[in-house]
């Protein structure tokens, strides 16, 4: 076996050659896994950036909220633009408050309930937005290894059929088919491992952001409740 033979043999075992030698089922599995991996990473990058943005927005909002600025003023500035996170919770609560008082609602208990519901709704919508597409990461993380394994099994099956056809058990006959089949498992793991890790990280981040927003909603609800009581007392006086 001289150098050119060795080079030819090596060429046959490169990843590209392995891919092209594989059967169409294995090819399909590998293409699907590659697409899933690309989509997973897109989600990971997108979410990481979105969470960082959301965290910064929360910080900024809390800063301005507790800065002593009047709530009316804050509402006026925020209502004009598109808000996210705590801002949208604040805006929805303030909108309900304003509507109730401008239209002359009298029942403070019903007002409190309405404001809470509006904030719950806003919070749920925000959480939905934060956790969107995390499910895809979870399902890829759990199913990609099996998809890869499926490709491997099919590849090894066809490989063994080829061995039976060639009537030779030489390792040189067996090895390329098994290598190309194992490539499918490798790709499945390649897609699944980052997906699982990122899912765990991102979902805990989302839960943290959600609890922060929930805390803010409770706090704001308490503040509004105090305001309602004060207004009722003023009216009574």
């Amino acid at each position: 076996m001289d150098a050119s033979d060795l080079a030819a043999l090596g060429g046959e075992l490169s990843i590209w050659e392995l891919f092209w030698q594989a059967g169409w089922v294995v090819k399909l599995v590998m293409i699907g896994l590659l697409a899933a991996s690309i989509w997973c990473w897109a989600i990971i990058i997108d979410k990481a950036m979105a969470y960082a943005r959301a965290r910064r927005a929360l910080d900024r909002f809390e800063e301005t909220f507790w800065s002593g600025q009047s709530l009316e003023e804050l509402y006026r500035t925020l209502a004009e633009r598109k808000t996210t996170g705590m801002g949208s919770i604040f805006v929805s609560a303030m909108r309900e408050w304003k509507k109730s008082f401008e239209k002359g609602a009298r029942s403070p208990i019903a007002l409190q309930t309405r404001i809470d519901k509006a904030m719950d709704l806003a919070l749920t919508r925000e959480m939905e937005r934060l956790e969107a597409r995390l499910g895809f990461l979870a399902s890829i993380g759990s199913s990609a290894p099996f998809i890869g394994l499926f490709g491997t099994v099919v590849g090894i099956m066809t490989s063994f059929q080829a061995i039976a056809g060639s009537k030779s058990t030489n390792l040189a006959v067996v090895a390329p088919g098994i290598a190309e089949a194992l490539l499918a498992t490798a790709m499945g793991l390649l897609a699944a491992i980052p997906a699982v890790i990122a899912y765990n990280k991102l979902s805990s981040d989302a839960a943290k952001l959600g609890s922060r927003m929930e805390g803010f909603a409770d706090e704001f609800s308490a503040i509004l409740s105090r305001q309602i009581d004060e207004k009722v007392l003023q009216k009574a006086a």
């Binding site: 997973c40 990473w41 997108d46």
Partner: peptide, 13 residues
């Protein structure tokens, strides 16, 4: 989402 997809595709490439 677009940036994420682009970056991801580039990384895979």
């Amino acid at each position: 989402m677009k940036t994420g997809l682009t970056v991801s595709t580039l990384l895979h490439g």
